[in-house]
């Protein structure tokens, strides 16, 4: 069983973001990066599949040279090897072009299963996995909370809205988008980190994959949102803030 897991490196969650000079992306100065959270769960699910069913876990990542850090982490956790599509400016691709880039790399590998997070914390398109499935001719399941191997392929638990779920069985090869919380993330061990140093990271380029930047609906402009509703800010130290809020809750909101 060969599992490919597509991961992405994104700015850390509590980053203060500033739009850069181009007005199309954020200024990377002073930003720390981490693996996109749902992708971390997709990686963990892939590693658990290998432990249960044998085979190989291949990490696929499109991103700048600096994404090597996230790729190495994934190898340290137990992935066998990696494909790195080196591209400094991912935002020049619209969602379809980006998926074409990933699909070209996946096709050559002929995997049994492709996993990815349900959406990214930066662009948040939430559609790369589904587009990939269509491009690869695979059936897909989205927002997956559980997976099990069956005689016919794979049975997955889809999360629906408002507390509803549904089991769906798909033939393999298939693509799944993984929801955060599906499993418990592992930490890398010292041994894993050491081993990762000798694991293969194959560099690929968009040109070699035959995909050019652009597309029909690229990001044109990035900016801070205008505040719709002005919240009333309660200032001062914690004690003063607490006292003022309680006054408001008593006399204005009449909630206590």
């Amino acid at each position: 069983m060969k599992v490919i897991v597509a991961i992405k490196q994104v700015p850390s969650r509590d980053s203060r973001l500033r739009v850069d000079g181009s007005g199309r992306w954020i200024d990377p100065t002073d930003l720390t990066a981490e693996i996109n959270e749902p992708d971390a769960y997709a990686l963990e699910e892939a590693l658990q599949w290998k432990e249960k069913h044998g085979g190989e876990v291949v990490v696929l990542c499109a991103g700048p040279a600096g994404a090597t850090q996230t790729i190495r982490d994934a190898l340290a956790k137990g992935a066998d090897r990696a494909l790195h599509i080196e591209e400094e400016n991912l935002t020049a691709y619209d969602s379809l072009r980006l998926a074409e880039l990933l699909a070209a790399a996946i096709r050559a590998e002929q995997p049994d299963l492709v996993l990815t997070g349900l959406q990214s914390d930066d662009l948040g398109y939430g559609q790369t996995g589904v587009i990939l499935a269509e491009l690869l001719g695979m059936p897909h399941g989205t927002i997956i909370m559980q997976t099990e191997k069956t005689a016919a392929g794979i049975r997955v638990k889809r999360e629906l809205e408002d507390g509803w779920f549904q089991f769906v069985e798909l033939p393999l090869p298939a693509l799944l988008t993984i929801q955060s919380g599906i499993n418990k993330l592992r930490y890398s061990t010292l041994m894993g980190i050491k081993k990762a140093k000798s694991k293969e990271i194959k560099a690929l380029t968009p040109a070699a994959l035959g995909v050019t930047p652009g597309g029909a609906a690229p990001l044109e402009k990035l900016y801070a949102p205008q505040r719709g509703k002005q919240s009333r800010l309660i200032e001062g130290d914690a004690r003063k803030q607490a006292a003022e809020l309680v006054e408001i809750l008593k006399h204005e909101v009449r909630a206590i």
Binding site: L96, Q127, V130, E134, L135, T142, I143, E159
Partner: peptide, 23 residues
């Protein structure tokens, strides 16, 4: 932009050779 739309709309747009702008 429901969970169900997230499941099929990217596929629909891709089949038409188009791009879905989501959410």
């Amino acid at each position: 932009h429901t969970y169900q739309v997230r499941d099929f709309a990217p596929k629909l747009a891709t089949r038409a050779g188009r791009v879905l702008v989501s959410d």
